[in-house]
Amino acid sequence: MMRSVARRAVLIVGAAVLALALSGCSVFGPSQSDRADALARVLESSDIGVTTAEATYQTSFGGDLTVTVTLAPAALDPAGRVSTETLTRILNVLATETSTMRVATTYLYTKDGDGQRVSLAAAAEENGLRAEKSGYSLVLSRTDLTGFANG
């Protein structure tokens, strides 16, 4: 009888630890959401031309991260699109900051100071990536970002 109670207690504790691990939570450090918030602060404090940034971690099997940045006019090319240099630098920050996160896919969206979406298709192509059909977002796998780490 006592053995089955102890076994049941071990199973309950094990299930709780597994649930925490799968949800992206950590009892020994910052949560994935905390790390996403820190990523947004890094983007905002950089000299890339990001005036505001929002990063949201969605708990899933692999972990998804959605990042939306508002860009200063200087971060855009003459045609009003995200410049290649700006995108490269943003990707470098994303690669570096997500290296300690459990993120399988990162979704990147860009807009200008008026809240209008800004195309990143040309800059993505220059970086060897392909923007989504609309040209206003990138879907990046961990592999896509690896090449931009410390770049």
Rank of each mutant, 00 (worst) to 15 (best):
R35L: 12
T146G: 13
T106H: 01
M101Q: 08
M1V: 08
G113C: 00
L108D: 02
A19N: 07
E132P: 00
V139T: 11
R35W: 09
L22P: 05
T88Q: 14
A79Y: 07
S46D: 02
T86P: 04
G113D: 08
T100F: 13
F61K: 06
S23V: 10
S46R: 00
A6S: 06
V10C: 05
R81I: 00
V69W: 02
A16V: 15
I12A: 15
T56R: 15
T66G: 13
T84C: 03
A75S: 07
T56M: 06
T59E: 09
G113V: 05
V103Q: 06
R89S: 11
R8G: 06
L71T: 01
R142H: 07
A95N: 11
L20R: 12
R89I: 04
G115L: 09
T52W: 13
R102L: 04
D37I: 03
L94A: 10
K133M: 07
L94F: 11
G135L: 13
R142A: 14
L87N: 09
E44Q: 07
R102A: 08
T51S: 12
A79M: 09
T59Y: 03
M2Q: 14
S46E: 03
D64N: 15
S134M: 05
G49C: 08
T106K: 00
A15L: 15
N92I: 00
D64A: 08
S141N: 11
A6N: 05
D144G: 02
G49L: 03
A149M: 02
L65D: 08
S46Q: 06
N92M: 13
T59W: 07
A55F: 01
P30M: 12
G115S: 06
N127Y: 07
D114V: 00
D64L: 09
R35E: 12
N92V: 06
R102P: 01
R142E: 12
T84R: 06
R117V: 03
T86D: 06
T98H: 08
V69D: 02
T100C: 07
T56C: 07
R35A: 10
F28G: 00
T86S: 04
D77M: 03
V69T: 10
M101Y: 05
V5D: 09
Q58R: 11
T84Q: 04
E85I: 06
G24Y: 04
G128R: 03
T106Y: 04
S33T: 15
S33P: 00
R142N: 06
L87C: 08
V69E: 01
S60T: 14
L87S: 04
N92A: 13
S45F: 10
F148C: 12
L18F: 14
Q32G: 01
V10K: 10
R142F: 09
V17N: 11
L91N: 05
V67G: 13
T86Y: 01
T143E: 15
V67N: 09
A55R: 02
